[in-house]
Amino acid sequence: MPSNFDSASKQYDEVFTFSNIGKAQRQRVYNYINPIIGSSKKLNILEVNCGTGEDAILFGGLGHDVIATDISEEMIAVANAKEHPKNVIFKIQDINTLSLGLFDINFDLVFSNFGGLNCLSKEQLSIFIKESSKILNPKGKLVLVIMPKKCLWERFYFSLKGNYKKAKRRNTSENIIVNVDGANVKTWYYNPKDIVSLSEALYKTKKIKPIGLAIPPSYLENSFLAKSPLLYILKGIDRIVNGSFWAKYADHFLIELEKK
């Protein structure tokens, strides 16, 4: 998996992590995984596609031991430059090399946030899911936040602009090229049922939740939608309309899997 995100590393936090939309979507993720990370039990956590390390630092601050990996050397450099607990280790690692024996320990949680796994083809994603089960402890959790095929906001926004091709760009089994802060990235989209199908032999599906059904995608950060009080209302809708049915229509969805 080639690293196309080095060029995005310097502005990633400004564009997404610390944006109003980025913070709102991330809070939805934390609310759904709080029963795991909010536990008083100390966990061994592996984060893949960790980007600039925001999630890993939070997990470490809660007392968990975290190894956070990303293929991008520059993303890891930004993460390492942040103040972080000693129990958080940042490491350059290609997700496609994940395998038993790569680490000295097994994990209670393997976590990937905000579409990092959308950079994998179906075959690569299937291998990742299988290999992740080998490094998880019994009843360990695999929690993934992925971009689905039918994002309502994307369809509405680009249709309003008259760009009907782009409005439906996600709804394909092929990869498309997406510009991420100047980096052209091969991207595949997956609905929840695709992940369930790939994982059901090894995992039980525990939770499927929409992330950003009413909260818009991050490319609308500079619009009125990202400003109060409207964003406050949109966040309220996301808190209420959170059934698994809506996951495939959101900007992202969270799926929690438990190792059988």
Rank of each mutant, 00 (worst) to 15 (best):
E47F: 03
N80V: 09
T97F: 07
H64V: 11
P85I: 04
N31C: 10
P85T: 01
Y12C: 06
V66R: 09
T97L: 13
I37V: 15
S39L: 07
S39E: 05
I67P: 13
I67F: 06
D55E: 10
I33A: 15
L46C: 05
A68T: 05
T97C: 03
I21P: 05
G51I: 01
D70Y: 01
D94N: 14
L62N: 07
P85E: 05
N80D: 00
A79P: 04
P35E: 14
L46Q: 02
G63M: 02
K42M: 12
G61N: 09
Q93S: 08
Q27T: 13
A77T: 10
G22Q: 02
Y32M: 15
K91N: 14
E83K: 14
G38R: 15
L58R: 07
G53N: 08
D13K: 02
G38K: 14
T69M: 13
G22V: 00
I36S: 08
V78K: 08
Y30W: 15
A68C: 05
E47T: 02
Q25P: 03
C50A: 14
F18V: 06
T52F: 03
M75R: 08
D65S: 14
I95Y: 01
K23T: 13
E14T: 11
I67T: 14
E54I: 06
I33L: 15
I71D: 06
I33V: 14
A77D: 13
I95P: 01
N80F: 01
N87A: 02
D65G: 03
P85W: 05
L43S: 06
R26G: 10
A68R: 06
Y30K: 11
A79F: 01
E14D: 09
Q27D: 14
A56G: 09
F90S: 04
C50T: 15
E83T: 10
Q25Y: 05
I76M: 00
G51P: 00
I36M: 13
D94H: 00
K41Y: 03
F18G: 00
G38I: 12
N34C: 08
I36H: 07
I45F: 13
V15M: 07
V78Y: 04
N80G: 11
K86S: 14
K41H: 07
K42E: 13
S39W: 02
I67L: 08
R28L: 15
S39C: 04
